[in-house]
């Protein structure tokens, strides 16, 4: 169990982490979510005793990390953002070193074999870490955290640099570990947190912006009736016509996806289904509808809504990317067209 009370870290005048409090129960997987520089890693570094807090306390299984660091650290398996690997050692030698470093009491051979099997690094155990791929290095880093079977696992962006298949493997592994470990996992990949975690804490500018289960978070931000459309035809005319539909809250043209095909975001008043009306208008005007999908509110939207405040009145998947493009478009001469394909954020394995 992890108890964090009013944890604060100042770097000079800058408050990297400001008064964070939360509790993680045994067997819970907590997702730490936040944009880069939000204070995720700083918080984790404080929890693991790598840096000290300016004020506040962090209790790992009832032991304060600053009062009795050695006892507290013995309960933690930590995978930092950059795995602490000695690249000139073989995987086996390195894990043996970690085993000694953590003063493990478990039977060495069988325990290390279990860890290697779990992280699927048995086949590379005799290779020098320097020569391993990024994915394997990350897995060795995870194995290092698992050595000694610590009850608390703190994983800082564990899937960074892995290919989609490996990401799924690691996620499944974390889920499995979550059954008998307390896990804190940080990520800026929203789908990851959605896929793995029981609970989500969103950190923004060093503060807890939200702390709830994923399901509750989705409920909190009302899911209005929104659609995303791709229609071929004159942009301005389409917007003008769609706006005429009764109950329509707004229509917004997004960027051009194909030649002459624009994407539109529309939102109707709650409880009003505008799909048939849209279809009717488009058919009447000879504008083929190439795509229509409901813009369900994802964790990403919630995340943006929370971290960016009320300034955003409409959200959609990959909304942030589109926003950036809009900003760039404004700065460019009006004729310039930007072709933009938002990359799939989770490597296409949601």
């Amino acid at each position: 169990m992890i108890e964090v009370k009013n944890l604060t870290k100042h770097y000079g005048d800058k408050k990297a982490v400001n008064n964070i409090s939360f509790t993680v129960e045994d067997g819970e997987i907590l997702g730490f979510l936040g944009p880069n520089g939000a204070g995720k890693s700083t918080t984790m570094n404080m929890l693991t005793g790598y840096i000290s807090s300016t004020s506040g306390s962090a209790l790992i299984n009832g032991v304060d990390i600053l009062d009795d660091p050695i006892k507290a650290k013995a309960n933690i398996g930590y995978l930092p953002e950059i795995p602490p690997l000695y690249v000139d050692m073989t995987v086996k030698a390195y894990l043996n070193f970690i085993f000694d470093l953590k003063k493990c009491k478990l039977p060495r051979k069988s325990h290390l074999k279990d860890v290697c099997d779990l992280c699927r690094i048995t086949d590379v155990s005799d290779r020098i870490i320097k020569h391993l791929s990024k994915g394997y290095k990350q897995r060795v880093g995870l194995a290092q955290a698992l050595v000694g079977n610590p009850p608390v696992l703190i994983l800082d962006e564990p899937t960074v640099g892995l290919d989609p298949k490996q990401i799924i493997e690691i996620r499944n592994l974390i889920k499995k570990l979550g059954k008998n470990h307390t896990v804190i996992l940080s990520s800026h990949i929203l789908s990851e947190v959605q896929a793995v975690c029981d609970r989500v804490i969103i950190i923004n500018k060093g503060q807890v912006a939200a702390d709830d289960t994923e399901a509750n978070l989705s409920k909190k931000v009302s899911n209005d009736h929104r659609l995303i459309l791709r229609i071929e035809g004159d942009r301005n005319a389409i917007v003008a016509e769609l706006k005429k539909i009764s109950g329509m809250k707004y229509v917004r043209a997004e960027m051009e996806r194909e030649a002459g095909v624009y994407e539109y975001e529309v939102e109707a008043k709650e409880g009003i289904d505008v799909r048939r009306d849209i279809n009717k208008i488009c058919t009447a005007n000879g504008w083929p509808i190439l795509m229509m999908q409901s813009a369900e509110l994802t964790l990403e939207d919630i995340f943006l809504k929370i971290t960016m405040g009320e300034g955003i009145e409409h959200l959609s998947p990959a909304g942030a990317d589109r926003k950036t493009v809009k900003k760039i478009e404004k700065q460019l001469p009006p004729d310039t067209k930007i072709t933009f394909e938002p990359e799939s954020k989770d490597g296409g394995n949601k």
């Binding site: 050695i70 650290k73 013995a74 930092p80 602490p84 690997l85 470093l101 953590k102 003063k103 290092q144």
Partner: peptide, 14 residues
């Protein structure tokens, strides 16, 4: 430089 100090400093060692 290799950030391995993070491993040492978060291990149960003084």
């Amino acid at each position: 430089r290799q950030k391995t100090d993070q491993g040492l400093l978060t291990a149960p060692v003084s």
